[in-house]
């Protein structure tokens, strides 16, 4: 019985899972940099090994299916405090009792897992629509402030949609950016924010704002309904909700 510490990468997490199933059961999995030493359990820092991670990955895919595997990745992207242990108990349950348990939504180990996965998926779905680009030269730049680390899940959609464009989607809170060009994409550290605007850009933004004002039917105004769909926390990323300068 011991706490496993990993380096914060998905491969690291998979390596921990591998040791958990192949060697000694883990009492918990934690990130090395935020771990608070436990008085009860001894801990060991696990070095990420790609080979073992691959092995674990294949095992999960083979026994639990691609769908559950994707859900595990979504759970990883949540970066929520203690998600590792929720993931661990979920996957432990599935391996012990068989893949049907992944669909056992009302089980006490599955509920919190489904909860996290659902939240991340919802945010990804939202940001597919919420990303707003601004043309800077021939580059399209967008700043977003999502709750979860959703950039990897946005990548293939935007890389395909803007196949012939150069795009930067900047996750300001994490100082990372998704960069895509010619259908290829990668994520890298990024901090630049004050990119120059242009007159044409302002004009198009104003046109959009004008359109947005006029498309609502006065007799049906329902701000509460609007807030359900566009929660206030996302509005700073949306140009149509920003106040005129």
């Amino acid at each position: 019985m011991m706490d496993y510490l990993y380096d914060g990468t998905f491969e690291g997490l998979l390596t921990c899972l591998y040791y958990n199933f192949a060697k000694i059961k883990a009492t918990g999995i934690y990130r090395t940099d935020t771990y608070q030493t436990s008085l009860v359990n001894p801990h060991v820092a696990i070095t990420t090994k790609e080979q073992l991670a691959d092995k674990m990955y294949e095992k999960i895919r083979k026994h639990l299916g691609t769908y559950t595997l994707t859900d595990l990745y979504y759970c990883f992207l949540s970066e929520k405090d203690g998600f590792e242990n929720i993931l661990l108990s979920f996957i432990d349950l599935c391996f012990r009792n068989g893949p049907v348990y992944a669909g056992y939504h009302t089980h006490k180990e599955v509920i919190p897992f489904d909860d996290i996965v659902g939240k991340v998926k919802r945010e990804v779905q939202r940001y597919v629509g919420y990303v707003r680009f601004k043309a800077v030269g021939d580059v399209l730049y967008s700043e977003i402030n999502p709750e979860f680390f959703i950039l990897p899940m946005l990548a293939s959609h935007f890389a395909d949609r803007y196949f012939n464009e150069k795009i930067i989607i900047h996750d300001a809170g994490r100082s990372l950016a998704l960069i895509s060009k010619d259908g290829k994409h990668f994520i890298m550290p990024y901090t630049e924010t004050d990119l120059p605007g242009s007159e044409k850009e302002d004009h198009i933004t104003n046109l959009w704002k004008e359109y947005f004002q006029h498309i609502a039917i006065e007799g049906r105004i329902n701000l509460k309904l609007q807030r359900n769909f566009v929660p206030l926390k996302y509005r700073k990323d949306l140009v149509e909700f920003s106040k005129p300068k």
Binding site: N164, L223, Q226
Partner: peptide, 21 residues
């Protein structure tokens, strides 16, 4: 590969106007 754009089977909403549509 020639231009811009794709279409998604599930549909994508981009924003919601003041009437909640």
């Amino acid at each position: 590969g020639k231009g811009i754009g794709n279409a998604r089977g599930w549909g994508i909403c981009h924003t919601w106007s003041a009437d909640g549509r």
